[in-house]
Design a binder for these strands. Structure first.
Lengths: 300, 300
DNA sequence: AATCTGCTATACATTTATGTATGACATCAA
DNA sequence: TTGATGTCATACATAAATGTATAGCAGATT
């Protein structure tokens, strides 16, 4: 008794949810407003349930609409993943691979490696998704993910790529002006750069360095790239990957013996992508790249 | 640049994969053969990739078709889950809940509880999926699952419902005819009932009771219900939940001090189902039922 | 107050998808 | 061999979905 609700309609449903109006969804989808209206009506008729409370200023989703949103989104990302896998299957390294990584990794570490990879495989297309959300792989939002924690799911292929060291850093200009802290307590007199949201990482950092609390931050920004930019601009003291700070001689380590934190780096992908060469090639290249990045450099 | 491949076509694709022919898929879907052919052609055109090698005796899936199968199936189960969630959302306990449990639990333990549940909530519909596969929840093949192992995934709501005790049992008739074993070594002279496939459980059992190997089994069957039936019929000695064996006074424990095994029981469901009352009601009822089932009875 | 813009809903035309009918070919059984 | 059955492919008719045009309404702007 497989029911007969068109899967297509869920795509329209998501657009209405995102745009907030039938007309807006129609524009976004490249179809017309009456069609969108008919799709929503069809869904509501099938479900015997209102999905939106209509008004002339737009549509407001009902509780039911919000409840099924997650499922509809999973359908969308699954459809996207399916297309990625289906296109460019003729054996060579062709087609699109979607890589998810933390912002700072995606912006500072991966680009050179991706450029090189594309030089070797010109047919390969890369979609880079810089995000700190972890759940992508299960939702099929990305094919391969670079993560700072071991995978909890066992239908994933995972490889450890070393560990990145985090430390406190500040720009030379800033330190010349404000002085180099010598004890953790000195930090209270400095401009600190940190996250806005309470993250598990932040709690861990707080345990090591009691001064490092949300209230103490002069700059609060939920983006590691943003933090790095602030550090580089000499705004204050912040957490940064040592391997990145090392690239700029004017970024100096602050309180190295009081704050050091290491994060495991993992590259993961779905098991069922193993068969297709382009995923394997990208996966291996990512592992190599990150191993190089996390490799401790000898003191020179 | 959201591509324009119709999601509907994946449903047709799955039917062709399952039936092995356009005509068969058409019959299964209640549409006509030319339509099915057109859908497949449309997919192949979009992917620039053959999905089936056509012959007059049927269609053979290509490697590409097999590769995207998993994704298409995820879309189907997601669509089904979405419909389940969307229908019967008017606050009360209405609509369908899909419960997955091991065969023996589904057949021997749950039915009375489900009957009672439906007496309290007549509008509730239950789909029972008796299977030993674990992966259902992530694939949205079931809403709630009863499992014998703690959940590894963290977007699940999970509650422990006690532990079931497993022991060796045989029917009185069998034991009168063949005698009661007194040492583990005696088992070699008996008819043993066990699994056909090597499972983690089997390996664990082997560690405790070296005799308990696949080669020693006189009856090999990959169904716990089937094993129970064989034990009840007096075919030999097999593993069975003590709580089930206790119901029939003619089922006697064999070598109780040499073989005892306890399995944690967990009831799990997706986080996002918590909002809808019917899932919560069913979840709670399952937990209660299994707690009663796993509760050790006082010796009388 | 009047006008403009943006939204939904409806009537009608058109395009698109589906169904019907049939042909060509292969396989199996008598 | 011959007929029966099952398959896919194609031409044509029909049904269904979409697009076009327009009306009606609410809020913002002048």
């Amino acid at each position: 008794m497989t029911s007969n609700i068109g899967w297509e309609y869920y795509r329209t449903f998501l657009a209405v949810l995102a745009e907030g109006s039938l007309s807006g969804a129609a524009r976004a989808l490249g179809i017309t407003q009456p069609t969108v209206g008919r799709h929503i009506s069809a869904l509501e008729a099938s479900f015997k349930q209102a999905l939106f409370t209509r008004s002339q200023t737009g549509l407001l989703p009902t509780e039911a609409a919000l409840a099924i949103r997650g499922h509809a989104e999973l359908m969308r990302s699954t459809a996207a993943a399916l297309e990625r896998m289906a296109t460019g299957f003729e054996g060579g390294v062709t087609g699109t691979v979607r890589v998810s990584a933390s912002e700072v990794i995606g912006v500072e570490v991966l680009p050179p490696m991706l450029a090189q990879l594309r030089q070797v495989h010109p047919q390969l297309k890369i979609e880079l998704v810089p995000t700190n959300r972890v759940q992508d792989l299960l939702q099929r939002e990305a094919d391969i993910a670079v993560r700072m924690m071991p995978p909890k799911q066992d239908l994933l292929v995972a490889r450890r790529a070393g560990e990145v060291e985090l430390g406190l850093y500040a720009h030379l200009d800033y330190l010349q002006q404000h002085g180099m802290p010598v004890t953790p307590a000195d930090l209270t007199r400095h401009a600190l750069i940190g996250f806005d949201e309470e993250t598990p990482f932040l709690r861990a950092a707080k345990a090591k360095l009691p001064v490092w609390t949300r209230e103490a931050f002069s700059f609060r920004i939920d983006s590691d790239v943003g933090q790095l930019a602030l550090i580089r601009a000499g705004c204050g003291i912040g957490v940064c990957q040592s391997a990145l700070a090392r690239r700029d001689a004017r970024l100096l380590r602050v309180l190295p013996e009081h704050f050091a934190y290491k994060l495991d780096t993992w590259v993961t992908m779905h098991e069922d992508l193993r068969g297709s060469p382009r995923y394997k090639v990208t996966f291996d290249a990512l592992v190599l790249c990150l191993q190089a990045h996390t490799e401790p450099v000898p003191e020179s």
